[in-house]
Design a protein around this nucleic acid. Structure first.
Length: 880
RNA sequence: GCCUCGGUGGUGGAAUUGGUAGACGCGCCGGACUCAAAAUCCGGUAUCGAAAGAUGUGACGGUUCGAGUCCGUCCCGAGGCACCA
């Protein structure tokens, strides 16, 4: 056994051993229960970042834990290889996205291997390869046949200078990132997936995912946003033609308070009204400026303009003015809303701004004088919010036939009356919109369509799949380079064989990642998208990834699984049984802001922190020039803030185990993790201490490998043994709930206890028995986190040939029992003292004992005891 | 703006169902070893106070014998908002 802990050498040896024994190869014909553990696959951006290390370490801990618990585990890895950054890199360096991507994959794979993850590399896939994305195209065609994909226009960000479509990320403060030009909204034809047809099932099945975090289910439910309301129409006459303007509302009970109607700038009626109203036309143009992002839309100043058109209230026939507003969304509901300023905050502010009438129609009952019911108004927020929250306190007032009706009754009555006039009905509406998948970009899956002047839109026949993306294009920022590739664009129409054009739009990269987990089950299958092996492995038992994917990726994947199910490709309803959403990795931000010019960020690695003698931070200096830098707090590691830490240097300096231990110890997986150099040093110190302790133990051992029978133990050894088993028990609980930081800390507590045991005055054989048993448990417990050192020490201490084959340890309940327990004694809930009592003491005896205690008597003073609350095994509270 | 989550010592965090707040680390202080330093080892470390004791989990209020944990209002931070992945 080596005296010094040398991670670089032993980690390579352990990894060679796992490769040679094919330790992580997953097979379908095992008699063990299957466990499919999947971490979200990385985008090959260049090199691993700390978020990746964290994500894959969490997955690996779960993989190895379940392997030792006797599961047949599949942990695969792949590459989410299409996407915008490759095009950006191409513009910067002139390298084709394909080459950049493949180079990155090669480098990052090497990095992943050096971290010792228990991955079955035989199933590796990359979404940018034709053998993968041909199935995107194949399923696209099936969905097109079923009407699950359709074509309609949708809004994009248009850069008028570069004449190109911009991603939301490329729009900064409403301007193009390269040109600085004001971005415009532009409507272009796109393909949509009809995810809304599955809205009800996607919502309902959230209940079938009890092992998903509550917050993710809540976010998805709110995203789908089912609301039951009333769709109804305001009749109007324009150019002597009677027409109807439809709106949707969840607050039909306030219909008698409507004082105006607002339509989106893109609404056909707005376009029509603008024909004879240049001022309105200008306003509508103004509304079309800016990005398509909802956050921008929601935070901009609410503006409106009257159209001069009036519509008729469907129940009172009153004349209602029609407005165009920049805050009405064309793609939700009807693109038109009724405005009730008395009972909606946004309408209220709009009405104040433009001096429109405010008519209260909901009030709280006044029992003394029903004729003086007090109106509830949005400017009385305490009451209004309370009423809105549970909808039970108020009722209709100033509402003619509906006076006195409560929320539900009013909606029923109003919907019935509207229906009788054929002007409305109750309707279920979802906030969820259909998924637009067309991208005017090069580095993605080609959409398999051909446009023929004679035949129209012609789907590419299956026999011509895949439509292969040329890999040698270099984008230059002025539109999709595919349009400049006649060899790609020009094609014979599959129907009439005349010259035709290929679609040059590619698919949203979320399409690629919506089904990759099914492909891992049968990555070598060349004849079909998936094969029956998919039903062996699905659903994924444990999925791990960043919380930032809580809605889009996870919802699209759930949708896609249901589509594949309905086509008979898989037999599960949901793809991921358990979900762990990991927190982001943060680091300090330092910068200097010059009088003029750009703010400069400095990597924390180049900054020295100054502290006072108590350790409080007093300042920060840039090491290169000794001058102060400003602290910008902490934030997610990013290029723009120059606060990333390259995992490569960490792995090279300390080795994989120390990096992994630090990641697991520093924060629980679901919380953000703050980077700290000294924390890494602490992890290194612990593993070195573990190594030398094991070395000393092995050197002084008299009976190699024997964990002999234990006779009666002296107190110190008994206590050390109790600590080991108690921590193991707690750690097993923590592993099940994925709280790995306390598992790591349990291994530290065990080593602390074993070090005291080693020094205890006791017979050598007894000490050896206790310490040997403790080390044996500790190594197995720590092995999922730091597999390399555990592998080596397990062999060096002759516990067995391969720790991976060892069973998961269970605590010995006998070791946990204590003769005496400590009770906390409180008086009126305040801790006064503690009391050592026999384990099986009766309640009456405790009460007697407590009342005789000097500290208790002093705290009682002269006041009489009202009652005594005893929590068995924990505490006593004397109430006075 | 909307949806969701979080806020505990100098610091990362712990506290299983409401039951000893601060486990285990980091940092800092003191000591041992050393010519010296690093490394390592030992001890201390919430705040105020000489002590007894009091205070303390973002703020304020409530429920309870008892609240970091439950309820209400507010403040601050993070993630998402449909073309970053």
């Amino acid at each position: 056994m080596q005296q010094k802990y040398n991670p670089q050498v032993l980690e390579r040896e352990a990894q060679n051993h796992w490769d040679a024994t094919q330790s992580f190869k997953a097979v379908e014909n095992s008699d063990k229960p299957k466990y499919y553990c999947l971490s979200m696959f990385p985008y090959p951006s260049g090199k691993l970042h700390m978020g990746h290390v964290r994500n894959y370490t969490i997955g690996d801990v779960l993989t190895r834990f379940h392997k030792m618990k006797g599961f047949n585990v599949l942990q695969p890895m792949g590459w989410d290889a299409f996407g915008l950054p490759a095009e950006n890199a191409a513009m910067a360096n002139g390298v084709p996205p394909a080459q950049w991507t493949y180079d990155n994959i090669a480098y990052m794979k090497k990095q992943l291997r050096s971290l010792g993850f228990a991955i079955d590399w035989e199933r590796e896939l990359a979404t940018c390869k034709p053998e993968y994305y041909r199935w995107n195209q194949w399923l696209f065609l099936r969905m097109l046949e079923k009407g699950l994909i359709y074509k309609k226009t949708g809004a994009v960000n248009w850069d008028p200078v570069d004449k190109t479509v911009l991603a939301n990320e490329q729009v900064i403060d409403g301007r193009g990132w390269r040109t600085g030009a004001l971005v415009e909204k532009r409507e272009i034809p796109m393909y949509y997936m009809a995810i809304t047809r599955y809205a009800e099932e996607l919502l309902g099945d959230l209940a079938a995912l009890p092992h998903w975090p509550e917050r993710v289910r809540t976010m998805q439910a709110n995203w789908i946003g089912k609301s039951v309301g009333v769709r109804f129409a305001f009749p109007y006459t324009l150019n002597k033609v009677a027409q109807k303007l439809w709106v949707f509302t969840t607050r039909a009970d306030t219909i008698m308070g409507v004082s105006f109607v607002v339509i989106a700038a893109e609404h056909p009626l707005a376009t029509q009204a603008a024909l004879s109203n240049p001022e309105l036309a200008r306003f509508i143009e103004e509304c079309k400026q800016g990005s398509i992002m909802e956050a921008d839309m929601a935070t901009m100043e609410k503006k409106g303009m009257a159209t001069g058109i009036f519509v008729q209230h469907p129940l009172t026939q009153e004349k209602i003015p029609l407005w165009v507003g920049n805050y009405v969304l064309m793609n939700y509901g009807e693109g038109a809303v009724m405005a009730v300023p008395a009972h909606d905050e946004r309408d209220f502010h709009f009405a104040l701004q433009y001096h429109l009438p405010i008519k209260p129609v909901i009030g709280i009952p006044n029992t003394a004088d029903p004729s003086a019911d007090k109106p509830l108004l949005p400017f009385d927020p305490t009451q209004w919010h309370a009423w809105y929250a549970d909808k039970i306190q108020g009722h209709c007032i100033h509402s003619g036939p509906y006076d006195g009706l409560a929320f539900d009754e009013a909606i029923e009555a109003i919907a019935k009356d509207l229906q009788a006039k054929e002007l409305g009905e109750k309707q279920v509406l979802y906030r969820l919109r259909d998924w637009g998948i067309s991208r005017q970009r090069y580095w993605g899956t080609p959409i398999p369509l051909i446009y023929c002047e004679q035949c129209g839109d012609v789907p590419v026949p299956d026999k011509d799949l895949p439509v292969v993306l040329p890999e040698d294009c270099v984008p230059d920022g002025s539109g999709n380079p595919l349009n400049k590739r006649p060899d790609f664009v020009n094609v014979a129409c599959p129907r009439c064989a005349k010259p035709a054009r290929r679609e040059t739009d590619t698919m949203d990269t979320f399409v690629d990642s919506s089904w990759y987990y099914t492909r891992f089950a049968c990555a070598d299958q060349t004849q079909s998208m998936v094969d029956p092996r998919v039903n062996h492995w699905l659903p994924v038992d444990q999925y791990i990834g960043g919380i930032e994917h809580a809605i889009l990726h996870l919802l699209y994947s759930r949708f896609w699984t249901k589509v594949m199910r309905d086509m008979g490709l898989v037999n599960v309803n949901e793809p991921f049984s358990r979900l762990l959403t990991q927190g982001m990795v943060l680091n300090e931000i330092y910068f200097r802001k010059p009088e003029s010019g750009r703010i400069a960020y400095f990597n924390p690695i180049d900054v020295d922190i100054q502290t006072d003698e108590k350790g409080n931070r007093t300042g920060a200096l840039l090491r290169s020039d000794g001058q102060p830098v400003t602290s910008g707090g902490i934030g997610t590691m990013s290029k723009s803030k120059n606060n990333g830490v390259d995992p490569q240097s960490l792995i090279e300096e300390y080795g994989a185990d120390i990096a992994r231990f630090f990641m697991m110890f520093t924060a629980p997986p679901e919380q953000t993790l703050e980077w700290s150099d000294s924390g890494v040093e602490g992890a290194a110190r612990f593993l070195r201490r573990l190594w030398s302790f094991a070395y000393e133990f092995q050197q002084g051992r008299t009976e190699p490998a024997a964990i002999s029978k234990m006779g009666p133990l002296p107190t110190e050894l008994k206590e050390a043994r109790r600590v080991c088993h108690a921590n193991l028990k707690q750690a097993n609980y923590d592993l099940e709930r994925h709280q790995f930081n306390t598992v790591a800390s349990a291994t530290m507590k065990m080593l602390n206890a074993l070090e005291s045991a080693q020094k205890a005055p006791a017979e050598q054989t007894l000490r050896e028995a206790v310490v040997g048993e403790g080390l044996n448990l500790l190594l197995r417990l720590i092995s999922p986190i730091t597999p390399h050192i555990a592998h080596q020490l397990w062999r060096d201490l002759q516990f067995g040939p391969d720790i991976l084959q060892a069973p998961w340890p269970a605590p010995d309940e006998d070791a946990l029992t204590q003769e005496e327990i400590e009770l906390v004694v409180q008086v009126n809930g305040k801790k006064r003292t503690t009391l050592k009592v026999p384990r099986d003491i009766s309640q009456a005896a405790i009460e007697q004992w407590v009342l005789k205690d000097a500290d208790v008597i002093r705290a009682l003073a002269t006041q009489p005891v009202k009652k005594i609350i005893v929590v068995p095994g924990r505490l006593v509270n004397v109430v006075i």
